[in-house]
Design a protein around this nucleic acid. Structure first.
Length: 738
DNA sequence: CAGTGAGCGAGCTTCCGCTTGACTT
């Protein structure tokens, strides 16, 4: 199998020969993650040696298709570039061992990793027995059980992975070159990224087509004794009020301003609020985005740090379980621990039996939920050892897990209707006051960073039917209907997960690839497709609608299940897909005109050399402005992002020589040395008029700051607040499990 | 803190999913 690099390795093998010292032979266990290897080695003791493969070592080559479409789609596997050394080490270790236990993850990919490892080891030595073990939690008991029940590799599962891999390769490596030919070199398309792009583009169309409409709301303050309550007009003449203009509002207030107001009905309803389940990867990314302003990528980076561990005292402590998971399952050990901790600290909020959560249908369930490894490390107790970002992410993980095993909260909502008849008696309206209070705190006692205003309650009116109240003043307010919100990291990840597209390990990279290809830009946290992105999407949707649809992935998964249950042979599955797909690729390649040349985006900028308009183009280094008079006029310039506060010139994006990190400098350099490491946002400081930037730093997270060092506008603002201001807060925070 | 684009060329780009460092500043 792993043909390519093996030949070279064989020579080395003979020289090393018999094991040197009288080292006692051991059982070699191979897992995927080195952090896991460390932990498991501790659990298993001195007879075992645990090593990590760090994911796949054997895969398709990057440089060519490597699928024999003429002969049963046989893939040509090679050792992944840069992994030969590690593979050789594992082969060497295996040779010295008494037995090898392949303990890669329990999902499709893990089974394939085990299979490749087995082949690679067998190619070296056939003497060592190789078996497969699996566990889906890292606890001493689970590991011991797994070791006691070794099994053989599940070939059907491996075949399902092979089919998945081959299918993705065929789609990606056929569609991408078509785009190079028809649009531009270096572009890409694939089963997952193209659907993500499509989802974003379709939403953008809705945003573009949305026509805001004016409407008005009418609130009123009422005095009851010394208290003042704000109420909303909910009914007028027996109907829900639809107010389109100030005049309509004034017509109402005119009629009722001297009316009699009496409480006509008071209702109280109680609601049980259940705690949310512990985090999966997708939920963690969503919550960290909404609460902390983190991108998916940043969430995963910080989570990785917590997983690998931080120095506490003299030792390194892994603070959370594995961060790439689709399951909310929790080990019995962890349940016992959290219940013991709650018994000590919140005995009244400890339910008699553990709270259970259903694992999602699509979950492969190879790992536990993301939870703190030790509940006793409360966020407060370890805050000195963590950076601000680590602490905040750890805090939401800790709060979410601990609260998930606490009692539900109970809230009571009072809704009081205040009726008014118009002066002439011919009209009537109802204003409604609502107030909520918490009557049983339950898990609300614990959560702090995760709590919302709603959970904290709001003023609870003391009113009963028949009370007379007096009007204090009206607050008419103008509004405009809002279009659908653009996707953010949080909402695109939620949507992809719902549709079964992508995996926990790929949610963040999917967003990154759309940004890297310039298909999408991020603007105030929103994902906005570029002209290029829209064009690519239009092409794919027009010519390959079936393959860039979430239904394609769903159908694929169904068939992979059949392969996994040995009801279908994997080459048959691929063949079924391949014939029509390939025919379509060829046809489009032959018949469809090139789109090159229609990529330029008109702008309002004018060429200072020849007076013609400038157009926005995409080059190897991103977008830039070029004269539409090309080739007569070859003027080009960078896109101005803001006015330079030092000299009034243009601030543009630049990349450093070394690794191409973006920064923002004045075009008048070297005459003007203004430079900013932070990207100007399309907003000027209301205090001093200079431009503002979005800053990310360890101390403050992400926040808007005025670029002027002498101006303190918004210097102290925090991401949590910002996340709510940024216009995306209307979107429900997480997938509705209410 | 350069220069980017299109025509002949020449060779390269690309997928999804599993894992970390090794790079810079």
């Amino acid at each position: 199998m792993a043909a390519k690099t093996e030949k070279k390795d064989k020579k080395m093998e003979k020289k090393k020969g018999a094991s040197k010292k009288g080292q006692a032979k051991k059982i070699l266990v191979i897992v995927e993650s080195p952090t896991k290897a460390e932990t498991i080695e501790k659990y298993l003791g001195p007879d075992y040696s645990v090593k990590a493969s760090m994911g796949h070592l054997i895969d398709l080559p990057k440089s060519r298709l490597a699928i024999d479409t003429e002969h049963n789609f046989e893939p040509e596997y090679i050792t992944v570039r840069g992994r030969a050394k590690l593979l050789k080490e594992l082969q060497g270790d295996a040779k010295k061992a008494d037995m090898v236990l392949l303990a890669s993850d329990i999902d499709r990919e893990g089974e394939a990793i085990a299979w490749h490892l087995k082949n690679a080891i067998t190619a070296k030595t056939e003497k060592v027995p190789i078996q497969r073990i699996s566990f889906n939690e890292i606890t001493p008991q689970a590991i011991r059980d797994a070791v006691a029940q070794p099994r053989v590799i599940d070939e059907a599962k491996v075949n399902a992975q092979k089919a998945r891999r081959v299918l993705d390769r065929l789609v990606g490596y056929n569609l991408s070159p078509l785009l190079w030919k028809k649009v531009k070199n270096g572009l890409s398309a694939g089963r997952v990224q193209s659907v993500a792009l499509r989802i974003i583009c379709e939403r953008e169309k809705e945003v573009e087509n949305f026509i805001p409409e004016e409407y008005w709301s009418l609130e009123a303050d009422f005095k009851v004794g010394k208290s003042v309550y704000t109420a909303q007009l909910v009914s007028w003449q027996g109907n829900k009020p639809e107010l389109h203009s100030e005049a309509e509002v004034n017509a109402i207030t005119g009629k009722i301003k001297n009316g009699d107001y009496v409480v006509s009905e008071v209702r109280e309803t109680d609601k049980t609020v259940k705690p949310k389940p512990p985090f999966t990867t997708s939920q963690l990314q969503q919550t960290a985005a909404n609460r902390l302003g983190f991108t998916s990528r940043k969430t995963m980076q910080v989570a990785q740090q917590l997983y690998e561990g931080v120095g506490i005292g003299s030792s390194r402590v892994g603070l959370i379980t594995y961060m790439r998971t689709d399951s909310v399952r929790v080990s019995q050990t962890a349940l016992d621990e959290v219940r013991a901790w709650l018994g000590q600290n919140y005995p009244k909020e400890l339910p008699p039996v553990p709270v259970e959560y259903a694992v999602g249908k699509k979950a492969q369930d190879a790992h536990e939920a993301i939870r703190p490894t030790y509940v006793t490390y409360t966020p407060d107790s370890i805050k000195e050892h963590l950076t601000r970002d680590q602490l905040r992410l750890y805090t939401i993980i800790w709060e979410r897990f601990v609260s998930s095993q606490m009692n539900s909260a109970k809230t009571r909502t009072l809704s009081a209707d205040i009726s008014v008849s118009a002066d002439d008696g011919a009209a009537n309206g109802i204003f409604r006051i609502t107030g909520t209070k918490i009557i049983e705190k339950g898990f609300y006692r614990l959560i702090k960073l995760l709590s919302t205003k709603e959970e904290k309650g709001n003023p609870y009116p003391q009113l009963k039917t028949g009370d007379r109240v007096t009007i204090d003043r009206f607050h008419p307010e103008q509004h405009f209907t809002q279009g659908p919100p653009r996707y953010t990291d949080a909402t695109i990840v939620r949507t992809l997960e719902e549709k079964g597209i992508g995996r926990p390990s790929t949610y963040a990279p999917i967003i990154s690839v759309l940004l890297d290809r310039y298909y999408v830009t991020r603007s105030n946290r929103q994902l906005v497709p570029t002209l290029l992105g829209k064009m690519i999407n239009d092409i794919l949707v027009e010519y390959f609608p079936h393959y860039v649809d979430s239904g394609f992935t769903a159908a694929m998964e169904t068939k992979l299940d059949e392969v996994e249950e040995s009801q279908m042979r994997w080459p048959d599955m691929i063949r079924e897909f391949w014939a029509p797909f390939k025919a379509r690729v060829d046809e489009v390649g032959k018949t469809v005109e090139s789109f090159k040349g229609s990529l330029d985006e008109p702008t309002d900028y004018v060429c200072e050399k020849c007076g013609k308009p400038l157009v926005k183009k995409l080059g190897r280094f991103g977008f830039f402005l070029a004269c539409s008079g090309f080739p007569e006029c070859r003027n080009t310039k960078s896109i101005p992002l803001a006015k330079c506060p030092k000299c009034g010139g243009d601030v543009v994006a630049r990349k450093t020589k070394g690794r191409g990190k973006e920064f923002y400098g004045c075009t008048n350099y070297p005459d003007c040395d203004f430079i900013s490491h932070f990207k100007p946002i399309n907003q000027n400081c209301p205090k001093c008029g200079q431009f503002m930037v979005e800053k990310y730093d360890k101390k403050n997270g992400s926040h808007k700051v005025c670029i002027n060092p002498d101006c303190d506008y918004l210097h102290s603002s925090d991401d949590e607040e910002k996340a709510e201001e940024s216009g995306v807060s209307r979107q429900p925070e997480e997938s509705g499990n209410e």
